[in-house]
């Protein structure tokens, strides 16, 4: 791990959107076109801000330099940025799970990890040699990447271990904080 400025970090941006079709797409465009990588969008439809607009929370990854450009571009596009740069997610963890992932309900596994830890699954790759039918007897593996708050990685890993133990899955954990030794 280094402190260099080209290191990708996770950011949370809270936006206010006018309630008209296409507003969300217009807001996401400055993010993608300025080198940001969208992690998740939390769109609170039905919930309006005091100004009658729709609050949207966007988690994204970018280098600090690009992130500045993104915020600038959002302002220029006339989008109201309520809060930016509060780094809710600043650590990425990758683990590999193996075993009867399908039979033990992979989506349940993922949601239990997310619910217990405040972490967000940003990427999931499944390798099931015998297909993904629920009755498959062949073990499979999944690589899961999570974004989590700084200093929360150990808690996330502990939770993954617990859930995996419940379902008799093997966990291959990363080595070291953030896994990059």
């Amino acid at each position: 791990m280094s402190d260099s400025t080209d290191e990708v970090r996770s950011y949370t941006v809270r936006l206010e959107l006018v309630d008209k079709p296409g507003a969300l797409l217009d807001a996401l465009d400055p993010i993608a076109s300025n080198g940001g990588n969208l992690l998740s969008i939390f769109h609170e439809r039905g919930n309006l801000t005091p100004r009658g607009q729709i609050p949207v929370e966007v988690d994204l990854e970018a280098t600090p330099e690009r992130f500045e450009g993104i915020v600038e571009a959002l302002h220029e596009a006339g989008i109201n940025v309520i809060q930016a740069g509060a780094e809710r997610y600043s650590e990425a963890i990758t683990v590999v799970l193996s075993g009867h992932l399908i039979k033990t309900d992979l989506s349940d596994t993922v949601s239990r990890i997310q619910e217990a830890t405040n972490a967000t699954v940003t990427d999931l790759s499944l390798s099931a040699p015998e297909g993904t039918e629920a009755e498959s007897e062949e073990p499979s593996s999944a690589r899961i990447r999570l974004a989590t708050e700084q200093n929360a990685t150990q808690a996330v890993i502990d939770t993954i271990r617990e859930v995996a133990e419940d379902k008799s899955l093997r966990v291959i954990e990363p080595l070291g904080p953030g896994g990059d030794l």
Partner: peptide
């Protein structure tokens, strides 16, 4: 250990 676990690790 599953071969598929090593494959997924390698992809990353």
């Amino acid at each position: 250990i599953e071969g598929s676990a090593l494959e997924l690790a390698a992809e990353d």
